[in-house]
Design a binder for these strands. Structure first.
Lengths: 336, 336
DNA sequence: GTGAAAGCGCTAACAC
DNA sequence: GTGTTAGCGCTTTCAC
């Protein structure tokens, strides 16, 4: 808590609090001499403005909530970094909540953030439709909501930051084909996540184009974490499904699968090439390093924060969709 | 922002705001009938208390700052989880800042949090002494500071949550010796981090006890991230230093080193066993999985939050040091 | 049991 | 150019 207040300065200098305030705010109606005295006294006594008073005055808490599915992988941290880059210098605090990939927890988090009186919420959701009612309620109450990465179903019009999942997924698959792979597995995320469906569409389109599509090669996972990837790999081996490569929905799933294969003595990339989507550090801290679609996560955070600022300035600003550019990074996991 | 206020309810029910307030706070001086009416109206109109007004009233922002070195690894996220477990239900917001292992950024973060008027700061520092002056200043201003994991030098008495680095490091080394390793490298963190020194001491003590200590086997890194581990491994190979195992300061350094060795075709654990310290998911998502000292990160966060609450309740509460139990988890990276 | 009024720290409209 | 005052939303004396 700030100890010393305008009132203290006012007493100290025998000036009214409004004069002090004006001096501090660099108002035009202030004597240069007076201002200097005030500034010096403020410095000397260690005055720090009370943000709470300002919040009350202006009706803005300067708190922005962030809801993410998890923070085990660096994905959200990177986006957070971008959000902070924009919001911290402007005096906004960012309050993070983790949903643990559970829509129920996400729901609680949203309610918690509302209780925290945030000015807006930036969210990467964990289920396309489950909490749609809450999203709506929140927006109806005049609290702007900005989505990134995983967005709600099309029935809800919102501001959002996304990547072109479909096209980039197809590029990954093309790459696998170009390097001679024919039995390309897709480890697909839950279909309650729009991106999973989009990436699958990209995958399917290319395989069909090349006439090598086989529905058996699509493994839909239940979860999103490493074990889900392991299960997918186990499933493939247990069923003796023949495959020479994997395109996974995310680095996380890819790594889970990769480690299972390595444990079973399968050589990567010699026997099975692995590629994925995300672009976190995870792709480069495993061996072999993963070919992956790199998303500009920090920039995505910055974009989301910008959208949020726009909405805060004018709640009726039109919803925008920002599509970020991604880059397919080729690494050892897909080359012999 | 909450739309509807006590005043609105007051008008709506033709009652004074004080009565409304009393009803909502379940005060004894309130007619049961009146209270019922108020509660119903509040529900109906969707009243939500304005936390800002409360903050101003009580002189507490209910904001707690968190300063961590990085969020690329899951270490801080886990601790954050624990902190949130305790603080969120109590209405405290947690505001995170990342120092990027840079004391200068840490300094800025601390100042930022002060400007945010936090009620207290929980911190995992990135340099033992560099910002000691700021820590002191902050505490002198009556803002409680609680440290965890990496703590300041002994000249600064503070509340903190730590683990027994020295003893657990020695257990890891004993384990390596028990599995037949003789040339045990230590990849040591920067000595500006107390834990690095403690873990090195544990390492040294055991090697000396067994008469196999060789100063050449200690590689002190400059950084803390994966590349620093790689560099250490490169250094070992370049200098043709003979070794059959590695004990690394952290999972991060261990993984960096491991991947470099794997790239050079060195077999793990057959040729080189690897063990580390941390206990994040990182240890289990690489191949082979890492033997590592598992720290109870969520619990550490909870303990730090508890210490913080104590300090908030009574700023003059005595400083406490909580030492958490850790567990050495044996995994494939140290077994043939 | 209820209402009026003060005050938390600050800014801004209004006097002078 | 400076001071006075009101008010942001809430709780809490103090009256009645």
């Amino acid at each position: 808590m700030s100890r010393i207040t305008l009132k203290d300065l006012s007493k100290f200098l025998s000036l009214s609090t409004s004069t002090i305030s004006r001096a501090l705010l660099n108002d035009k109606n202030i004597n240069a001499e007076t201002q200097k005295r005030v500034l010096e006294a403020a410095e000397k006594l260690g005055y720090r403005p009370n943000t709470t008073a300002l919040s009350l005055k202006y009706g803005q808490t300067k708190n922005i909530g962030l809801v993410v599915p998890e923070m085990i992988t660096p994905f959200s941290s990177k986006v957070l970094q971008g959000i902070q880059n924009i919001l911290y210098p402007l005096g906004y605090r960012v309050i993070i909540t983790q949903s643990d990939e559970n829509p129920l927890i996400e729901r609680k988090n949203l309610q918690l953030l509302e209780e925290f009186n945030v000015d807006g919420i930036i969210i990467n959701l964990c289920h396309e439709t489950y909490n749609e009612d809450v999203y709506k309620e929140i927006m109806d109450r005049g609290i702007p909501l900005v989505f990134f990465d995983r967005i709600p179903s099309k029935t809800l019009e919102v501001s959002k930051v996304v990547v072109d999942d479909n096209i980039k997924a197809s590029l990954v698959v093309e790459h696998l084909i170009n390097t001679g792979r024919k039995r390309i597995v897709h480890i697909m995320g839950p279909s309650t996540i729009r991106n999973a469906v989009e990436r699958e569409m990209g995958y399917k389109r290319i395989l069909k184009k090349h006439n090598i599509f086989d529905p058996e090669l699509i493994i839909k996972t239940d979860g999103m974490m490493f074990e889900a990837g392991e299960h997918a790999a186990k499933h493939l081996l247990d069923r003796k499904i023949e495959f020479d490569s994997i395109f996974a929905f995310s680095d996380t799933l890819a790594i889970g699968a990769m480690n299972y294969l390595l444990e079973k003595g399968i050589k990567i990339p010699e026997q099975v090439a692995v590629a994925s989507f995300s672009g976190t550090e995870l792709a480069t801290i495993v061996h072999p390093k993963l070919t992956s679609v790199q998303q500009p996560l920090v920039k995505m955070g910055e974009a989301a924060a910008d959208l949020m600022l726009e909405k805060i300035k004018d709640i009726s600003a039109p919803n925008q969709t920002i599509v970020m550019d991604t880059e397919l990074i080729y690494r050892a996991s897909t080359f012999n």
